Amino acid sequence: MTDSATSAELTPTVPPITGRPELLARWLYSVAAVIVVMVIVGGITRLTESGLSITEWKPVTGAIPPLNDAQWQAEFDAYKQIGEYQQVSGPAGMTLADYKFIYFWEWFHRLLGRFIGLIYALPLAWFWIKNYIPSGYKWRLVALLALGGLQGTFGWYMVRSGLSTEMTDVSHFWLSIHLLTALFTLGGLIWTALDLGRLAAIPNARPAKFTGMAWAVSAILFIQLLLGAWVAGLNAGLASDTWPLMQDRLVPEFDLAKGWFWAMTHDPYLLHFLHRWWAWVAVAALIILSRKVRPFDRRASIAIHSAFGIQIILGIATVWTGVDLWIATAHQGVGALLVAATAWGMHLIGRTA
């Protein structure tokens, strides 16, 4: 037997890469970037009280805004039928020009949702037809598509919850479902893109596992994001413009007349308090995660530290400025980036599990 033959026999065989994982990874990162923009626009929509400006859901024709004065007046008249206008906007003297401003943000938010659907569904169909999707990833990509569909559905249920003469805002429960579904989808896109990128570099690489640490960090971060969504939905950011004290005390007064459960899900003072201090539990968990990640990829550790550091500063600034539009919007946008950075870190740990 020749030396070359012996060498060939001893060299482990590596299965060939099926599909185009690197191409798919770049595509998923692009979709994830647009979702971050979507979260930011959603924050502006919420902070400008624009979410109820469009009272109907028209998946296709709704992409076209009013084109003449009669159409604008019809939309404005529909808006006048709901409680937000009758109890808040109308008494404040809203004009048609004011209405066009809030209409734009809700319309743009919905348009971005449609755009994300197109840039995900159409390439997915093309990759499927061309057999570019590696073995084992089709179901995951379809699941992410389904999440996108749910996101749109939850968005409409959120809007519908505020379309009555009694309500002046959307349900903070539906708002939290809508936002957290977007962030969960973002994390799923990042995770899948990382799996595909690793597969492109290492043909026999297996998908990363979701470890015990990942579950713990996810649970802690989920609570913080949920509290943040409820704070936004109840306008609880306005409960205090001082930090670290509220009402000149560490623990503010809050309403317990209906019990602890109601207070922890509805009272703006208690929710504001919980959101600002649970943040430090989340910080502790993220520090532990980033320290564990550092030996694998220092960039991920820096990304996690930077994201939660900036997020804390923006959160305090949001309070001090009385929920300034652009600072509060940046706070929500960096929250999305924090989710992406955390997914990156958890994925690194899961590679060796």
Rank of each mutant, 00 (worst) to 15 (best):
S4W: 12
S7L: 14
S7K: 13
S7W: 12
A8S: 15
E9R: 14
P12V: 10
P15H: 11
P16L: 00
T18S: 14
G19E: 01
E22N: 09
L24G: 07
W27M: 08
Y29Q: 11
A33M: 15
V34S: 05
I35Y: 06
V36Q: 06
V39D: 06
V41P: 08
G43S: 03
T45L: 02
E56Y: 06
W57V: 01
P59K: 12
I64S: 11
P65G: 06
P66W: 02
L67E: 13
D69C: 04
A70G: 06
Q71R: 01
A74I: 06
A78Y: 05
Y79W: 01
K80P: 02
Q87I: 02
S89W: 09
P91M: 03
P91A: 07
P91D: 09
M94I: 09
A97Q: 15
Y99T: 13
I102H: 02
H109C: 04
L112K: 08
L118Y: 15
I119M: 15
P123M: 05
L124M: 00
W128P: 05
I129Q: 14
N131K: 15
Y132P: 03
R140F: 01
R140D: 07
R140G: 07
G148L: 08
G149Q: 07
T153I: 13
W156I: 07
M158Y: 10
T165Q: 13
T165F: 02
S171G: 02
H172I: 01
T181P: 06
D195F: 11
P203E: 04
N204T: 14
P207C: 07
G212Y: 12
A214W: 04
A214H: 01
A216N: 10
V217G: 01
L225V: 06
L227I: 08
A232Y: 01
A232D: 05
G233E: 07
G233V: 00
N235H: 14
P244H: 12
Q247M: 10
R249Q: 15
L250S: 05
F254P: 04
D255N: 15
K258L: 08
G259S: 08
A263S: 14
D267P: 04
L271F: 04
L274H: 06
A282E: 02
A285S: 11
R294P: 02
A303F: 03
I304C: 04
S306K: 00
A307Y: 11
I310K: 03
I313L: 15
I313S: 01
L314M: 03
G315C: 07
I316T: 02
T321F: 12
T329F: 00
A330C: 00
T342F: 11
A343R: 01
M346C: 10
T352V: 14
A353V: 05
